[in-house]
Design a protein around this nucleic acid. Structure first.
Length: 234
DNA sequence: TGGCCGCACCGCCTTACGTCA
DNA sequence: GTTGACGTAAGGCGGTGCGGC
């Protein structure tokens, strides 16, 4: 469909675009005409080099395009607003991509962490065995206990509470032995916090828990204040 | 020198028209 | 021909900077 273009300023439409309309309110615009492609092209080319116009240049441009200076000023204002809006959208996309990438890496690291914790628990059991072998209930054929519990207690807390001294007994104070740094005592209480504070971009973006369907509360059981956790973030 | 006023300009939000599917 | 979504020119408002008094 053909556009209706804004005529030159000296034509009738110019009368509807007062030079200083700021004080004239409630005077509804009668007609609105889009600028011609040529006008837009020139405006865009100038906007590329300077997003704000000097007054003299604005007057010159208004003459060249047959528009009112105020129309030029408004076009630049609206153009800056459009540019800003697009920039915000671009920034949002970039941030979201970074967030998604980070969340993905977070998830994979959590899996790796869980795997390493299991390895440590198994090693802990191995270190424990020679000292206390008589207390250990008889394992089933597959190596698991037949009563459904473990030699370290039936709860996660008990297992962890007992697992920690075993390292000390074995002279393994520093978990750097496993390439890890163990969290102890008060530091342990903070070990789970970064997980809960994993940044969500905003309410519209799901947190990792929602995004990936896992619950941080399950991973960091705060019912055990002395739980052994590794500092995920170091 | 500090305060006031008018003006121009800006950013931001809103309105209303033009265009298109 | 109608309608709803979208783009955009322009209105309106509050804020700021500047020059004159």
């Amino acid at each position: 469909m053909e556009r209706e273009y804004y005529p030159a300023a000296h034509e009738a439409i110019a009368d509807q675009v007062p030079q200083t309309p700021r004080k004239k309110k409630k005077n509804k615009m009668k007609t609105k005409r889009r600028f011609s492609d040529e006008q837009i092209r020139l405006l865009e080319s100038i906007f590329e080099s300077e997003t704000k116009l000097e007054p003299r240049k604005k007057l010159q441009l208004a003459r060249d395009l047959g528009l009112q200076p105020r129309q030029i000023a408004i076009w630049f204002q609206n153009r800056r607003a459009r540019g800003k809006s697009k920039q915000i959208e671009q920034d949002y996309r970039t941030l979201k991509a970074n967030y998604d990438s980070l969340a993905s890496r977070f998830e994979s690291l959590m899996k790796e962490k869980q795997s390493l914790i299991l390895q440590v628990q198994k090693l802990s059991e191995l270190l424990e065995e020679p000292h206390d072998i008589n207390k250990v209930s008889k394992p089933g054929p597959d190596g698991n206990r037949t009563d459904g519990g473990s030699e370290y207690g039936d709860t996660k807390c008990e297992r962890e509470a007992e697992a920690q001294p075993s390292f000390q007994q074995a002279g393994v104070e520093d978990m750097g032995f496993f390439g890890l740094q163990i969290e102890k005592d008060k530091d342990i209480e903070h070990a789970g916090q970064p997980l809960e504070e994993f940044p969500s971009m905003n309410d519209s973006l799901a947190s990792p828990e929602k995004l990936y369907g896992f619950d941080s509360a399950d991973m960091f059981d705060h019912s055990c204040s002395n739980s052994v956790w590794f500092n995920f973030w170091t």
